[in-house]
Design a protein around this nucleic acid. Structure first.
Lengths: 101, 101
DNA sequence: ATATATACTTCGTGATATGATGTATAGCGT
DNA sequence: ACGCTATACATCATATCACGAAGTATATAT
């Protein structure tokens, strides 16, 4: 898929993945695999940005000797998803224009 | 609308605008206004990129003493629009995921 | 005269995705 | 014992991109 088009959904995809249950980096990538392929460097960049934007909070734990950081969505994160759904409607209008012309 | 989401459709919107009839910068902006607001610097950047990507060709003319550059879509440009439509289907799948979760 | 519309150009900046590379542990097969 | 793969996160350098700001220049309306 086109790189620019991806960019528009990456953040929200990650938020959607942790919406119903807290998750951690490696698992997010695996869970998203059927929907959207993304590399570790890309994901961790996104997670960091979402954290800075207070759309999720992090809880570091230790699991079988390894570090594991669990990400939990916040109210702002949930709002971001809702906003996206509204933006999607706008985008549908734009798509119609492209299709019809 | 979210900046990232915009990016995914800007190029194709411009191509769609000149698809049925050759047009020039200032007119493209006006025609797109109801669909998508975009500044001159943004448009001319896009036009330049599309030209470099051979998705359109340019013909400079003089109109009432002023320079006017007409943009004409190429086969590659038309293909770009068709590709976008296919990518849109993929994107719909991603949206469903976001909506359902 | 002055403001507005038309028309294109260039520069600098900030945001972003991604590949490459690195660190470290657990578990499995040979 | 050794190597490989999976797990798990971190950092850096790079390339792409949208956009505001500022500039050049003409025609038309007030």
């Amino acid at each position: 898929m086109d790189a620019q088009l991806r960019r528009g959904v990456l953040d929200v995809c990650v938020l959607a993945t942790i919406k119903s249950e807290d998750s951690y980096g490696y698992k997010i990538i695996k869970d998203l695999r059927p929907i959207l392929e993304l590399s570790e460097s890309t994901l961790y960049t996104i997670l960091k940005r979402l954290e800075e934007g207070k759309m999720l909070v992090v809880r570091s734990t230790e699991f079988e000797g390894r570090l594991r950081k669990y990400y939990h969505i916040t109210e702002l994160g949930l709002k971001r998803i809702e906003d996206f759904k509204n933006e999607w409607k706008e985008l549908m209008g734009i798509y119609s224009f492209i299709e019809e012309v």
